[in-house]
């Protein structure tokens, strides 16, 4: 998985390329741990990533909780058909903001 982080003041966009699975989710987790402090808006761009397993969902859910606690916002951008279905299956499609 390739992760590209673009910081702009209190906004952070992470572009994911590849598959967010059990083996790659820790990479996203590490990056967010490092880059998230001080961020108010996080945009996760899924244009090049339409494979998300439960390990990925867990990272998204904990990141969502961290941001929510500091009144921040997490947005999922360019969510593909497969990922959308996964979010629906676990009841998170209406919870996560999408753009």
């Amino acid at each position: 998985m390739k992760l590209e982080a673009k910081k702009n003041g209190k906004q952070l966009e992470v572009v994911l390329s590849g598959e967010l699975n059990t083996l790659t989710a820790p990479e996203l987790s590490l990056l967010l741990e490092k880059e998230l402090p001080g961020i108010e808006t996080l945009i996760l761009n899924f244009k090049e990533c339409d494979y998300v397993s439960s390990a990925g969902i867990r990272v998204l859910l904990s990141t969502y909780k961290i941001l929510k606690a500091v009144k921040g916002q997490m947005m999922l951008k360019d969510v593909g058909e497969n990922f959308k279905e996964v979010l629906e299956n676990v009841g998170l499609d209406a919870v996560f903001d999408m753009c």
């Binding site: 969902i57 867990r58 859910l61 969502y64 909780k65 299956n89 998170l92």
Partner: peptide
């Protein structure tokens, strides 16, 4: 969502 457990999602999926 804030209250949700983080486990058990894989089997559900």
């Amino acid at each position: 969502a804030e209250e949700r457990p983080i486990g058990g999602l894989g089997i559900l999926m």
